[in-house]
């Protein structure tokens, strides 16, 4: 029970990080970004191969995040900005991009699972009788710290405020000197970097294959919808709840049903609170 709770929190904070990125874009660009998971996979591969090249843990982590950030910026600049805020077109673009990217991963990295070798051995006894693998603890801690930092960034910095202002009224924001185009590009990069961060912290735990992205995107979309589209806080809370539900569900029922809990949760939310927990807030 104690272990399941902790495990749920770890898993949940990783879900939260990934879904917050997706929700940021949903709020800002009114767009469901279907290639979110591919940026997760891209960063996982990057991290695994960079580690193997022997440049060390922290540089590998930072470089992988940078790669997913730049990939996001390029995607927004070269593809999405051309759709001229036609949401259906942009959505189709991200959908196609997800197929293209997962096939590119297959060509470049092959079909076999790749796991990063950032093994941190041993376990930590947190409460008497409850211990957890150090690996998971570290992953969970990184995820938790980053989602707190991201939340504070959106809430309290000038740039975060600019993003929220553009999300609500790009024209008025522009009249006050905020450049909506640049804001969108930056936010998109940050969103894919968050997907990348989730990919990096999960890569030592779950091996990645070229089409892992689809599941990641689906989970992130569920979390985002449960939390309320565009709500950063909602994504964080829903991520944690989903992590806990999956972990406790696997503990008491069966691990085989774990993915089903997410969708059950989603259906219940849509039935009883269609706008999500924190509907319509960025």
């Amino acid at each position: 029970m104690g272990f399941s709770l902790l495990n749920g929190l770890v898993l949940g904070s990783i879900y939260a990080v990934s879904a917050m990125g997706l929700s940021l874009i949903a709020g800002l660009m009114r767009l469901v970004q279907f290639s979110h998971g591919e940026f997760f996979v891209l960063a996982s591969y990057c991290f695994a191969f960079l580690l193997r090249s022997g440049i060390g843990l922290i540089p590998s982590l930072l470089l992988s995040l940078l790669v997913s950030f730049i990939a996001g910026v390029l995607t927004e600049r070269l593809l999405l900005s051309r759709a001229e805020s036609d949401h259906n077109r942009s959505m189709m673009m991200t959908f196609i991009l997800s197929i293209v990217l997962s096939n590119a991963f297959l060509i470049f990295f092959g079909p076999y699972p790749v796991q990063s070798e950032a093994r941190i051995d041993g376990s930590i006894e947190i409460f008497p009788g409850i211990s957890m693998g150090s690996q998971r603890m570290v992953s969970g801690a990184i995820a938790m710290i980053s989602f707190l930092m991201f939340y504070l960034w959106v809430r309290f910095t000038r740039m975060g405020r600019a993003i929220r202002a553009v999300a609500q009224d790009p024209e008025v924001a522009l009249s006050f000197g905020i450049n909506p185009v640049r804001t969108r590009t930056l936010a998109f990069g940050i969103s894919t970097a968050l997907a990348g961060l989730a990919g990096v912290v999960l890569s030592p735990i779950f091996p990645v294959v070229p089409d892992s992205g689809a599941q990641v995107t689906l989970t992130a979309i569920s979390v985002m919808v449960i939390g309320g589209m565009g709500s950063i806080r909602g994504a964080a809370v829903a991520g944690l709840l989903l992590g806990l539900a999956e972990s406790l569900g696997s503990h008491y029922l069966s691990t085989r049903y774990a993915p089903a809990f997410g969708f059950l949760f989603l259906i219940l939310t849509l039935l009883f609170r269609p706008r999500g927990l924190y509907g319509n807030r960025v």
Binding site: R161, R164, A165, Q168, D169, E171, V172, V282
Partner: peptide, 10 residues
């Protein structure tokens, strides 16, 4: 602006 257009969530 017409219709005030304050940033409602801010």
């Amino acid at each position: 602006p017409e219709g005030r257009r304050v940033f409602a969530d801010l």
